[in-house]
Each structure stands twice: as structure tokens, then as C-alpha cells.
Write a protein that binds this DNA or RNA. Sequence first.
RNA 1: GUCCCGUUCGUCUAGCCAGGUCAGGACACCGGGUUUUCAUCCCGGCAACAGGGGUUCGAAUCCCCUACGGGACGCCA
Length: 503
Amino acid sequence: MTLPVRTRIAPSPTGAPHVGTAYMALFNLAFARKNEGKMILRIEDTDQCRSTHGSEVAILESLKWLGIEWDEGPDKIGDFGPYRQSERKEIHANHIQILREKGHAYPCFCTANRLKELRSEQMSKKETPRYDGHCLNLTEEEIEKRINDGESFVIRLKVPTEGECCFTDELRGEVKINWNQIDHQVLQKSDGYPTYHLANVVDDHLMNISHVIRGEEWISSTPKHVLLYEYFGWNTPIFAHLPLLRNPDKSKLSKRKNPTGINYYKEAGFLPEVLLNYLGMMGYTLPDQREIFSLEELTQSFDIKRMSLGGPTFDLEKLKWLNGRYLREQLTQDEVVRRMIDWKINSGFMKKIIPHALQRLESFSDFIPLTGFLFQDYPKLERTSLIGKFEASYASKLIKVFEWELEKIKSWNREEICNLFQNLAEKEDKKLKEILPLFFQVITGEHVSLPLFDSIEILGQDLVRIRLRKALDFLTAEGFGISKKGLKSLEKDYRLKYGDRID
RNA sequence: GUCCCGUUCGUCUAGCCAGGUCAGGACACCGGGUUUUCAUCCCGGCAACAGGGGUUCGAAUCCCCUACGGGACGCCA
């Protein structure tokens, strides 16, 4: 009898919920359900600098919106908790101690600077950058002394000096990677928190995970994981590395080139079951090749071996077509009405708009034309109004800078947005009044409408981001885009004036 | 740069594992029909096995090489 199937998704709460997370969750869930197993949701928040509670809440909500349910998780206690890695710090520390005692891990006192130099030196010698073992042979006395002296240190994984690691990927067969390619991975950071690699292996084992189904970006660090299982004397789970969702240019799906936030699809008026259905046809086809299927239908016949391995391009056009078919064929007209009301045609949303619209209303019939842009995915743009007072190429640059600045906003409210614009005007040596008409047009597509800052707040980050994107595309199509070279120098200037970019 | 993974119409893919149907379907696009417009719907069309070498009577399918694409190379996950 084989072990019960337990899969997991392990999102890191460091940003907006990503469609890639949903993509992996979907197949983990389908596989678990098909095999009468369970799917666990574990929050990987070992990065104390970047993890936020807000992001965790948002991820859970987004997945629930999509109809993805897990059997155990931070909000659904099972027998293997806690399900948040920050609450498992002691467990991880104990396991690191075990490795230390067995001689499979060692403290390292090297400074960030030294490592940086080492890396660039190796790169220039065309070697694979990896730790050189500088602290590998320190004596226990020396280690104790340096720790007692308060020197900052990390714990590293010892890696065999020769031979190769061989593991089986359920989809790709045998994968062999030479140990000399594998870095002496940091297992414990100087803040005492474990890194992904350690926490992930320990937790997967302790949570009885039978199948690790994750993105192919992890293939090259799998040897580290395999090694950890071996050092601990544990059986490895079955690995299956799924292809990564791609941008139209084939690079890994990123928000700069595509809407990647689950929230975007919600705000833009897509049905959750459609997004899920669409993700299900990325890299997978049902045996009868039908294109419209529910999560249950996908699950019933799910066979992970049917996954195709080429990274699929996320194509908005086909998603739109699918959503249209659902509206026409899968829902009754009553349901469409209800779903639309749930979406935005409700009093909650109206109440947000009314304070700003009221001064501009003479009759109810003014409302829809005035506020229509708040319900749109993105408005139609006009050449004349978009280019207006600035040189067109300057408009592109301004929008681009704004796009970068927008990613720095911590909490989405009017005040932050206002500050951002004021800062932008100041840095660009322009009056606020001068730069606002451009953005007014980009965001609303209108000449007369609601106040800009409030509109931006109501629209939310995802819809604002796509409008900037569309405006940039539009300007490019009109011949006023930013060249690759121009973008590079703009970015350089930007860093100088505004500080580093955040992606 | 090094290592790893991948490669069927522009896009998502079926077929590949167990070689042998004009390489099938869907999106997009183009044309036609239905429709007072548009859309929907229906019909038709366009369009691919990355390249080279093997194995074989026969290769999209098995093997090798090359090219191209992607990923990884963090005290991020």
C-alpha cells in the first residue's frame, strides 16, 4: 500500500497574489483530489523583510475567490501545523542543529562583501559562482569564540566535492546534476531564520508531503533538497516540475509585460471559474480535448503525465473568448445579472463613487457616462489628448517613471497617491497642474470626469497598472515609444533621482 | 559564462511512452452565410512537426549532434 497522497502549495507572502501561484495550486489540487489525497497550504514567510500579513490575507482570499480549497492551512488547522513557517522557527533551528551535529552543516562568517567579490571573480573566470568553502574547516573552538564575540554568521550546507546528484522527476525522468554545480547553500540566515531550502524540506517531510509539484524554476536547486533528505535520513517525496507560464516574448510571466495579479482578472470582470479553466488548459488537455471544464471535471480525469512541458504563453485573447462563452453558455441570464451585481454593480461600489460624482451630476442619466471608466478594463485613448502639451516622447517617459513609482506604494490610498504625484512633479521640475492632464487622460480616457487621485484609489493598483501599460503601448504604436537604449538611460536617471526600482 | 530543462500552425494544444490515418481541434486572422447595425451563431480558408544526421521497409514519434528559447546560479522564494 502506498502512502496517502499529500500535496502542497507554498506561497510566499511578499506581494500581490500571482496567477502563477493559482496555476500551481490548481494542479496540486487536481492531483491530490484525483488520488483521494489532501492539499496543504503553507505560508513560506521566512523572509522577514519582505513578508507581510496583508499579502498573506490577499493570497488566501484570491485563491478562495478562484475556488481553490485546501485541506490544511493557516486558517484550517490540521494535524501537521503550524502552517506558517515563521511559527516553526524552533523546529527549523532544531533540525539545523541536527545537521550541525552530524557534520552536514557548518557556520560561515564571511561578509557579504567577500562573497560578492568571490562571485564576480568566479564569473570572470567563467566558473559557476559558488561558495569556496572558506569557513568549512574552522575548529570548534574558533567557531565558539567568534560566535561569543558576537560575530554575525550563517549556517551552510556541506555539499559533496565530487560525483553527481541524480533524481527522478515524474515528468522529465532522470535528472543529473554534478555536485560541483551546487552551492554550499545557506540554511540559516544571520537573523536566525531558515532559508527556503531548509524550511521547505523539513516542513514537507514533517507534513508528510508525498508529491512536490512545483514550478520548473526549482529543478536546479532540487539537488540541495535531495541532499537534505539524505542527510536527515528521510525518503524523498516524488518531484514533478511543471512548466512556467510565459509572457508573449517567452520570458517567465511578469507583471511588467502581463497582468499577473489574480486581482486584476477579478477587477477586469472575469469569472473566477473561467480563469481557473483557462489556467487548466495551459500545459494540460483533458483526454477528450474539451475546452470548457470545471475544476471537478478536470480533477476526475486528471493525469499529471499528460502535462506538456513547453512553457505556455498566457494569451489574454483566448481568456476573453472563454469568458464570453461562459457568460453565454454556462450561466443563465439571472446568474449573469447576479454575478455582475456581485462584481461592481452594487451599492458598496456606488457609495465609493457618489461623493466624487455628485457635484457633476444633474440627472441620473449623467452617471454612467461620467463614471464609465471605473467599470472598464481600460479606456480607449486618443492621440491628441494624450500627447497634448508635452513632447510625446516625454509623455512616455513620464508614464514609465510613474509606473515604477507606483510599485513603491505601500498602502493604496489617496494620500499616498497624492504624495506620489507631488514628488513626481517636484523631481521633474514641473507644476502638478502641468503633469496631471496627461495622467487624467491615461486613467480615465476622458476630458471631463471624476477627480484623478480619487479615481486612481477607486480603480485599484491592478487596473491603474494596465492603463499605464496601455498608454505606453499606444504611444509606442504612434511612434513615440521609448527605445531600448532610451529605457536604459531613463532607468539610470530614475535611480539617481528617485532611488531604486521595486519589482 | 556555467549547469539544467524545453522545442508540433502567430497562440493554446492532440498525436510521441507502445514508429505506419492527407499531422486533428481551439483562439486569432481572412472569406462567406444568418442578423435593420454590431455582436452572437453557422460554414469555409490560411497556417506547424526547429535544423542536420542516424536506426527502420517506414520517424512528429526512438537515438545522437547543432541551433534557438527558457530557468537556475542570493543571508528571495
